[in-house]
């Protein structure tokens, strides 16, 4: 794993802000209060993600981005983190 320059995908900053604004609003007003049956900010996420796919240069981050489409990656991460959190 080498070193790279910062902000490889700064070109996506505006789309990221739009997504984060939407996500933070959804998380604070709905999800964190238990309304977790519907995924929101999907359009914002898809635009932001498409931008990352086109512009993210750092290889390791890029491979995570591409693999994320396969649900197996997320499931594995979940299993690992749930298993290893022993403190309550």
């Amino acid at each position: 794993m080498g070193l790279t320059k910062a902000s490889p995908a700064s070109i996506c900053a505006d789309l990221r802000s739009a997504y984060h604004d939407c996500f933070n609003r959804w998380f604070s007003e709905k999800f964190s209060k238990g309304y977790c049956d519907k995924e929101e900010c999907v359009v914002e996420w898809e635009k932001y993600r498409d931008c990352l796919v086109q512009n993210l240069e750092e290889k390791h981050l890029r491979s995570i981005l591409m693999k994320a489409e396969e649900s197996s990656f997320a499931s594995k991460a979940t299993d690992d983190s749930e298993r290893s959190f022993s403190h309550q």
């Binding site: 490889p8 997504y19 984060h20 977790c36 932001y48 990352l52 995570i64 994320a68």
Partner: peptide
């Protein structure tokens, strides 16, 4: 310096 979301998924069954 920089933060990006690389993946997000809402599990419909578990929430």
């Amino acid at each position: 310096l920089d933060v990006h979301t690389l993946s997000r998924r809402l599990d419909a069954s578990s929430g």
